[in-house]
Each structure stands twice: as C-alpha cells, then as structure tokens.
C-alpha cells in the first residue's frame, strides 16, 4: 500500500476523485452510481472501456461515498493480470470476504482490475468465487471489452461502458490541477498535453507532473520532449512534403526527429493518428494508413527501423506520383 506521503507526491493519486461528482466525462454512468449510493444497494458491475477514462476512479469514489470513513476497510483492489494467477486472487478474495463488513453496510466491494486478462478457465473459477461470496461482497470487474468476459458472468452483472474522454474534459481537469499547484500553463501547453494524452487522463496528469518538475512555467516543447513525441505539425509537414514531391525535405525532417530521440514506433503511431485528418482524399488516407501499419509490422518483426521509415516516405512519394 502506498502511504499518504507518497500519495501526495504522485498526482494521479493526489487528484484521484474522492467524490463521484468529480469523476469527469461519464455523466450518465455517474448518475446511476450515485443512485446506488443513495439506495445503499449495489449489483455486481462490469466497467468496460479504454485505459485512463475513469474506471478505477469511479470504483474508488463509489466506495468512498458508499462506506464513508470505513471505505478502505470495505474496499479492496486486485489486479487479475498479475502473473500470480487466479489462486492468489481467490485466496485474497476469500480472506477479504471472510470478515464481516465494518460499519453501517451489509456488503464489501472487490474491484478486480483487468479481469479480461484472465483465461476462460480462470474466469469460470472466478464466477464460482463470485457466487460463493455474493452474500457479503459485490464485485466490480474492469476490462477493455466486456465481450472478453464470459457470458455467465456478464449475465450476473450490470455492464457500464466508459467512453473515451473528450479533449475538453481532459483540458478542464489539467487546468484545475495546474491552478491548484500554482503552475503557469499557456493554452499552447495545455493543447500539447491534451494531444499527448490521447484520451487517457492518467497520461495527461503524468505529463503535467513531469513538466512541473523541470519548471513552474509549462512550455509545449517541454511536454513533447518529455513524452518523446513530435509536434503534430512536424509529422503532417513531413507527410505533405513527401506527397508534394519534396522527397529530400521529407527525409531530412524524419532524420531530425529520430536524432531528437523520438522512436520510430512513436513516429508511426503519430502518423497513423494524424493522416485521418489531413486534407487528402479518403482513398488516399486508407492507402497511407495501410502502408504505415505495414512499416510498423516489419519493424516489430525485427526489420531495420531506419530503412523501413525511409522506405515508407519513399512509398508516400511514389503514391503521389501515380495520381
């Protein structure tokens, strides 16, 4: 367990919402969770959705509001994907569930993170464990896709789909934290943080905290530098050059990014992300995305990063020539 001192020092922990109202970007889900609290009743739940959109935050805030001061005694969090395996999960659940809930409540809450990392066999075992302790415990399972949870478990749970956070939601929270911490955060810098976060609040807060370590005045370049990402306009510039016949310029820009320590993997990810919004015909976009994915695959399989990236730029150049 992280003690309080350390908690304060990690901003994702320090600014973890204590109340359901503070969980951003999921208004409908939060409204339902609040009613569970007011009725002091809770079914088993599945929280599905991508990383950093508030699944854990919602579970913790729910426990805090449901149990008040005794929340930490009545709530436990387990990670299903830890290689210690289902046996450990079962023993921990057993030990936790065996003791009576503390305070004015008839049940405890077990939050099982990454439940979709369990195999089907392990999930069947989990299902039995859930049934066995359902008298004293409610389970909240988190996962990326609920279809990876076996049907008999799904059938016994209410499933909530958490959506990706909007840029506005992330921006608002980052602005709030920056003000609390007395940081100077320009709009450009805020935009950079939102860009590097890709819908993941945890990543956004981490980026802000890393930059704050260096200086109280947060600059966009610091954000891109710390996260080893290129500015979006650098990537689109490079692609545009290649497609406009300026092959040399494009290669030079690529070399400059690599020299700055940005990985080929990251460049490809950003290319893929930005191509979709570029001002080119839709069919061209698919073609480029396919080529980018192909290069990524080859590099993952062990091909030379530099050669594959240069070849990718060359293929952009050639694709434009064939128009």
């Amino acid at each position: 367990m992280v003690n309080n001192l350390q908690r304060e020092e990690i901003w994702t922990e320090k600014y973890r919402p204590e109340r359901l109202d503070e969980v951003v970007g999921q208004p409908h889900i939060i409204r339902n969770l609040k009613s569970y609290v007011s009725k002091r009743n809770l079914p088993h739940l599945i929280f599905s959705g991508p990383a950093g959109v508030g699944k854990t935050a919602a579970a913790v805030a729910l426990a805090r509001e449901m149990f008040g001061d005794t929340w930490s005694e009545n709530f436990t969090e387990l990670n299903a994907s830890d290689e210690r395996g289902i046996e450990v999960v079962r023993n921990t659940i057993k030990n936790f569930a065996r003791t009576m809930p503390i305070g004015n409540t008839s049940f405890k809450i077990i939050f099982l993170d990454e439940a979709d990392a369990l195999t089907d066999a392990a999930q069947s075992a989990l299902r039995r464990t859930m049934e066995r302790y359902s008298g004293t415990c409610r389970f909240i399972l988190s996962c990326n896709y609920s279809s990876k949870i076996i049907e008999p478990i799904q059938s016994r749970c209410s499933v909530y789909r958490f959506r990706s956070l909007s840029e506005a939601a992330i921006a608002a929270r980052i602005r709030y934290i920056a003000d609390k911490e007395g940081l100077k955060l320009s709009n450009d810098a805020l935009e950079a943080i939102v860009y590097v976060a890709m819908g993941d609040m945890r990543r956004a807060i981490n980026a802000l905290q890393s930059a704050a370590v260096l200086s109280n005045d947060i600059k966009p370049d610091t954000i891109y530098g710390l996260t080893a990402m290129a500015r979006p306009e650098e990537i689109t510039g490079l692609i545009n050059d290649a497609m406009n016949g300026k092959f040399r310029d494009s290669i030079d820009k690529l070399a400059e990014l690599l020299d700055r320590g940005i990985s080929g993997d990251e460049i490809l990810a950003q290319m893929h992300r930005l191509v979709i919004n570029m001002d080119i015909p839709a069919r061209k976009k698919v073609e480029l995305m396919d080529r980018i994915g192909e290069a990524d695959y080859r590099i993952t399989e062990g091909a030379n990063e530099r050669i594959q990236l240069d070849a990718l730029i060359a293929s952009f150049f050639l694709a434009a020539q064939h128009e």
């Binding site: 889900i29 009613s35 599905s48 609920s146 279809s147 499933v159 909530y160």
Partner: peptide, 25 residues
Amino acid sequence: NDLQALSISTERHIDEEDIVTGARD
C-alpha cells in the same frame, strides 16, 4: 437485472437516455 438497475438508479420518469448499461446494447 438491467431493469432493476434502471429502477434503482433513477427516481423520476425513465427515458431512453437512462440506458447506459452498455455491452448488451
């Protein structure tokens, strides 16, 4: 279960917007 979740979670008149229990949707 979904129907009961709806009944627990909303006091007032229930409409389509209240269905957030996903996955099966």
